[in-house]
Simulated scan of single mutants.
Amino acid sequence: MLKKMILAGGAVALLSSMTLGTPLFSYARCGASWLKNSASDSMPLEWELKRARQMIADLKPEIETNAKRIAREKVDLVHLKDQLSETRERLAKTQDDIERLSSDLRGEKDYYTYAGRTYTSTQVKSDLGNRFKRFKTRQATAEKLEQMLTAREQSLNAAHARMDAMLGAKRQLEVEVENLQARLGALRVAQTTSELNLDDSQLARTRDLLDEIATRIDVEEETMSVDVEYFGEIDLNEPSEEDLLDEITTYFNRPVGEHSEALVSIQLD
C-alpha cells in the first residue's frame, strides 16, 4: 500500500512538472526563499549576533592556514636566493676559467700545464668547449632562477597584502559586532524601561485605590464620631420644675411678636 502511495505521489509530481513547467519550480523556489527569510526573521537578535561571532571565529583556521603558506613561501624564497647566489658565484668562476683558457690558447702552444699536469692544445680546446657549454646552461638557469625569484617575491607581496586585508576585514567585522551588541543592549534596556513604566502606572493605580479606601474609612470614622457626639450622649441631669418655670418666665417676658409663630395655645377648660 505504501509503495503504491509513493508511486502515485511521484506520478502526480511528474505530471504536475510536465504540465505546469517552469511556474511550478518558480513557486517552489519562491516558497523556499520565503521560508528561509521567515526563519531568519524569527530568530532572536542575540542568537544572530552569537552566530556572527562564531562565523568570525571560524575565520581563524583559514587565516592560520594562509599564514603557514606565507611562512613556507618565505623559507622557499630564502633557499631560492641561496641557490641563485651560488649559481652566480659558479658562473663568475667559470667565466674566469674560460677567459684564462681562451687567453692561453691564443698563444698557439702545443702543450699547456695546469696544476702540475700537461695537456695538449686539443685537450685544452675540448675542455674549453665543454666549459663554455656548461657556462651557457648555468647562465640560462640563473636567468630562470632570477625570473622565478621575482615572480615568487611578487606573489609573496600579494599574499601579504591579502593577509593584511583579511585581518583588517576580520577586525572590522569584530568592531561591527561589538557595535551591534551595544545597540542591541541599549534597545533591550529601552524595552525594559518601557515595561517598567507600565508597571509604574499599575502601581500608581493601586496607590490611588488605597488612598480612596483610606479616605472612605476616614469618612466613616468621622461619621461615627459625629453620631456619638450629638446623638448618642445620655443626659445625666433630670429636668426640674424650677428650670421649667424659669424658661416660661423668660419666654413671656420677651417683646411681643418674637417667635409668635411658634406659640401653641392649650385649651384648659
Results as ranks from 00 to 15, higher is better:
A8S: 10
A190W: 00
K125W: 07
V78L: 13
I70W: 02
L196H: 09
L263K: 10
S126A: 13
D76F: 05
L105F: 03
E153A: 05
Q95R: 15
Y112C: 02
R183S: 11
E229H: 09
S240A: 04
A32N: 02
T141H: 08
L184W: 12
H259V: 05
L145Q: 07
M163A: 07
N37D: 06
Q181C: 05
L156I: 10
G129N: 11
E220H: 10
L45Y: 13
L156D: 01
F132Q: 08
S16R: 03
S194P: 00
S260A: 15
G107Q: 09
S16Q: 01
L20S: 05
E64G: 04
K68P: 01
L80A: 03
A186R: 12
N157C: 04
L209T: 13
E62A: 01
L149T: 14
A151S: 14
A151D: 15
T137A: 01
Y112L: 03
A161Y: 03
D208W: 01
D110E: 13
L35Y: 10
V75Q: 11
E238L: 02
A67G: 07
V175A: 12
E178V: 09
S26Q: 06
Y119G: 02
D97A: 09
E46F: 02
T65Y: 04
K93L: 15
L209C: 05
A204E: 14
A165H: 04
R29S: 11
Y27E: 06
K93P: 03
A71E: 09
V228N: 07
V256H: 09
R88Q: 12
K3A: 03
Q154W: 12
A169W: 00
Q154N: 09
G232E: 06
R29T: 10
I213Q: 09
I266R: 14
Q202Y: 05
N37F: 03
I98N: 04
R188K: 11
L184H: 15
Y111N: 13
V264N: 08
L91A: 07
K125I: 08
L24K: 00
D97G: 04
E247W: 03
D227E: 11
D110T: 11
G232V: 00
M166E: 04
S33K: 07
E143H: 06
T192G: 03
S33Q: 08
M148E: 04
L45R: 15
G257L: 12
D104C: 06
K74C: 11
A165N: 05
E153K: 14
P255T: 06
D208C: 13
A39P: 09
V189A: 15
A214T: 10
A67D: 02
R162F: 01
P239K: 00
A28F: 11
